[in-house]
Amino acid sequence: MALPIYRKRVTRSSGGDFASLVMLLGLGAFMALPMVYVISSAFKPLNELFLFPPRFFVKNPTLDNFKDLAILMSESWVPFSRYLLNTLIITIFGTAGHVLLASLCAFAICKHRFPGSRVIFNLIVMSLMFAPEVTAVPNYLTISWLGWVDTYWAIIIPSWASSLGLFLMKQFMEQMVPDSLLEAARIDGANEWQVFWRVAMPTVRPAWLTLIILSFQSLWGNTGSTFIYSENLKTLPHALNQIVSGGIARAGVGAAVALMMMIVPVTVFIINQRNVVQTMGTSGIKE
């Protein structure tokens, strides 16, 4: 008998279905427990946070931690809205620039196949392997030479050149945009920009939504620590980390902060899940 949540295939035994369901649920619990703990701790009153033995779920939920957080925010020397504004500026400009530049370049690489595009694409695939730390030292030198230290640019401009985004976009365009479609537009008199913007980009909507998500996530969590020194240019994650670093006394507020930081990227992903999965379907690397 097939389990009700499984699609049935000839090669599947019910015992195997059952075993894999058990494994999914077991690992799912392991993944979910810390998240549930964060959510439940964010609503715990003080006396429940320091119970012995510790209790996992909240018994008398309150909003005290969020109120404390609001008080801490209003007491901070730089107004809290400024940190939020900084993060929004970095996230919006970084994401928009990245999506536009990476899509343009991906379009030229896979639809024009200009001389040198193969070599460049291989370099980009290779650079998927660079840990950002490997280039941290020279990047700091470059950015200070350009005079961008302690400005938004230090975070925004390098984020435009992320190689994962270009890679995913190129793979998706190559497999999902038929050359004949572009050719038809050219015959109808469209110039290359119109072909790119009016024909190719609407077709690869799942891919740029994915690029938005990936770029958004990395910029939303950016603490800007190496490049930004002025307190009024610092980011939201930086400010929230300061609050949490208050230690054990801030355990409840810390959970409230973690919950707030988590909600945004998770919500963005939930809305776009289908597009992301479709884009990843073309991510494969052929040898």
């Binding site: 810390p34 998240m35 964060v38 996530q217 973690a258 990227p265």
Partner: peptide, 9 residues
């Protein structure tokens, strides 16, 4: 994708 939530560990 949950950023600093791992600090709950």
């Amino acid at each position: 994708i949950s950023g600093n939530v791992f600090m709950i560990w």
